[in-house]
Design a protein around this nucleic acid. Structure first.
Lengths: 224, 224
DNA sequence: ACCTGAACACCGTTCAAGT
DNA sequence: ACCTGAACACCGTTCAAGT
């Protein structure tokens, strides 16, 4: 099976930036970041690689634009009327889930510092932290830390999921074999790792992520 | 100038895994991740690309091994006799600085979940969190969150630094132009971002990173 | 056992030439 | 203005052939 040729697709009403981004997201979702090549993309759009460069500057710009489309949607989670702490949890989980569903978004966010997709997150988190009324000097650092935690951890989670998927492994079997490796480490040098090895296979990344947010918020509370 | 040919280097006492990793770190530090190609590496080692494959399985294994060498050193920061909270800060900063100095380490850590370099960090942080005596059910999640925060934020910081460096920009000019872009956003949609735009050029990533750790530890304290 | 280096199957990007 | 598709300068990896 493998690659299905889809040259027979209806002739698009000419190319456009939107159509290109839409097709890119489809490819990224089904084949991952490495699947998005200008050749695969131009095949799907029934055109040549050069045509895409008329609408888009580079692959990196394309990734940022595709990433922004996903983030814009994730950040639209309904938080109206929630207490700020709940809103922060809801937004965080919405982003976590979006990055889990579209693993390539994590990497794209890292490569677009200060760009639109990151600003969207900053703004939404910032508004909620502001409503928390932390000490004035702490606000910026609190928002930075939260933003970084959310993106950093979601990205790592997605990378892990990707890691097993591309190798055709199940998450559970990977974690189990990892737990065995950990438990066989020298107890002299790795007492903690040996101890927690058996907790590895059962842990829930999403719950761990949320727990981190809560530790954070609890720390923020002591800054009035 | 550009590439200096260094074929005249003394004939190594044959190739070895160690020698290859050592040369890889040199290339990664000077030319970044994209600079490490099997051709560049075999040039430096005065051999052919195929020779490297005798000692190393793939580029990904090579990156993990190089990463491990750096992490092993960073995690060796002296923390003996410190109170656990101080030790956690010291370890965190040591890792932050190491990843800042070797930006490619951040990416490599993400691609090696559960492997040696990550375990080294887990172990050291884990021992200190254990000494904090948090509630039993919270320990694992606390360590996970800290680990993820440290790696995630350090990685993002290094990526940002890299971003400016590869474009031949200064960090300050980039932040200033970013601040201008932010301040020009529509105040209706981006009130928070507009407000904090002027804080952007002066902020200190390392201090922000440490502030996040402290919020975290303070949150942990409420879990006895 | 270890090394060589040509060859394979790819990339992102450019650009003369077409409509 | 927009598209075509060959060509350029690269990759990681393999493998027959050498020592």
């Amino acid at each position: 099976m493998g690659k299905t040729t889809r040259t027979a697709k209806r002739r698009q009403e000419s190319l456009s930036r939107e159509r290109i981004i839409e097709a890119s997201i489809e490819i990224l979702d089904s084949d991952g970041e490495e699947g998005l090549t200008f050749r695969a993309l131009s095949d799907r759009l029934a055109t040549g690689p050069g045509a895409i460069y008329w609408h888009i500057d580079s692959k990196s710009e394309l990734l940022t634009a595709a990433c922004d489309a996903i983030v814009a949607h994730a950040v639209d989670a309904p938080v109206l009327g929630m207490p700020p702490e709940d809103a922060i949890c809801a937004l965080s989980l919405s982003l976590f889930d979006a990055i889990d569903a579209h693993p390539w978004v994590g990497a794209a966010l890292t490569h677009a510092p200060g760009q639109m997709p990151v600003v969207r997150i900053l703004e939404r988190i910032g508004q909620q932290v502001r409503a928390l009324h932390v000490r004035d000097g702490d606000e910026w650092q609190a928002v930075c830390a939260l933003l970084n935690y959310i993106v950093g951890v979601s990205r790592q989670n997605a990378a892990n999921a990707q890691f097993t998927r591309t190798r055709g492994l199940y998450r559970s079997t990977l974690l189990e074999s990892l737990a065995i490796t950990w438990s066989k480490l020298d107890r002299k040098d790795y007492p903690f790792t040996c101890d927690v090895a058996d907790q590895l296979p059962d842990h829930d990344d999403r719950a761990d992520f949320l727990a981190g947010i809560k530790f954070f918020l609890s720390g923020l509370r002591s800054s009035t």
